[in-house]
Amino acid sequence: MGIIGYSSPDCGMERYYTQENMKQLLDDWEAENRRLHESELLEIAKKSAREFIRDADGEPYKQEDWEMYLTEDASRVDKDTEAAMNYAIDDGDWFTLAENIGRLANS
Rank of each mutant, 00 (worst) to 15 (best):
Q63W: 10
A45M: 07
N21Q: 13
N33K: 03
E38N: 09
Y17R: 11
Y16P: 05
E67Q: 12
E99P: 02
P60T: 06
S48E: 00
E67H: 14
D91C: 03
S107R: 14
K47W: 05
E32K: 08
E14G: 15
Y61N: 09
D80Q: 14
K79P: 00
R103N: 09
F95C: 02
G58C: 09
W29R: 13
L25D: 10
D55I: 08
Y87H: 04
L70F: 02
E64W: 05
D73V: 01
K47M: 13
D27N: 12
T18R: 13
R76I: 08
V77C: 03
K46N: 08
D27S: 13
P60G: 08
W66S: 03
I101N: 07
E99V: 04
E40M: 10
G58R: 09
H37G: 00
A105W: 13
S7K: 15
D91E: 14
T81V: 14
A49K: 10
A31H: 11
S7M: 15
D28S: 05
E43W: 01
R76F: 08
D93Q: 11
N33W: 03
S107A: 15
Y69E: 07
S8Y: 08
R103F: 06
D27V: 08
L41Y: 05
E82S: 05
Y69M: 07
E30P: 00
A105K: 14
L25M: 12
W66F: 05
